[in-house]
């Protein structure tokens, strides 16, 4: 590479805006995620008919049955493949845009 090119690149890098984005933890100020992003599971209990197809296809054993013939999700085991959302006949399960799921309370990671 020629010296001129190198100087041009160095100057451009100096004047360029940083490519990194600031991480803001307040809701509403966070980085926007695309429409199809697979985040924390959102469960509509009313729509669930208890067919348990999601349990049969879940690859990591996230989903368990409850006494009232509905399901509960343990997000700490989830791999976010969205197979449960795809198989659900009533669209009771969908994967939301929430990616901030780190918590100190285990109960926060259970969706019912």
């Amino acid at each position: 590479m020629k010296l001129g090119n190198m100087l041009r690149d160095a100057l451009r890098a100096l004047l360029h805006k940083p490519v990194t984005v600031r991480y803001l933890t307040r809701a509403g100020e966070m980085v926007s995620v695309p429409e199809r992003y697979r985040g924390k599971i959102v469960y509509d209990k009313e729509a669930c008919i208890g067919c348990l197809l999601c349990i049969r296809t879940c690859p990591s054993g996230v989903i368990t049955t409850t006494e009232e013939k509905k399901v509960s999700f343990n997000i700490s085991r989830c791999v976010f493949c969205a197979q449960c959302a795809e198989i659900c006949p009533t669209d009771a399960i969908r994967l939301g845009s929430d990616f901030e799921i780190v918590t100190s309370e285990k109960e926060d990671l259970i969706v019912q």
């Binding site: 995620v33 695309p34 429409e35 199809r36 992003y37 697979r38 791999v79 976010f80 493949c81 969205a82 197979q83 795809e86 994967l95």
Partner: peptide, 21 residues
């Protein structure tokens, strides 16, 4: 990848008998 399939690394694009997105 994130826009098309929803994930950066594990796309999960394939399924039996086709693709998902």
């Amino acid at each position: 990848f994130e826009e098309i399939t929803g994930n950066r690394i594990h796309h999960s694009m394939n399924t039996l008998g086709g693709v998902r997105w």
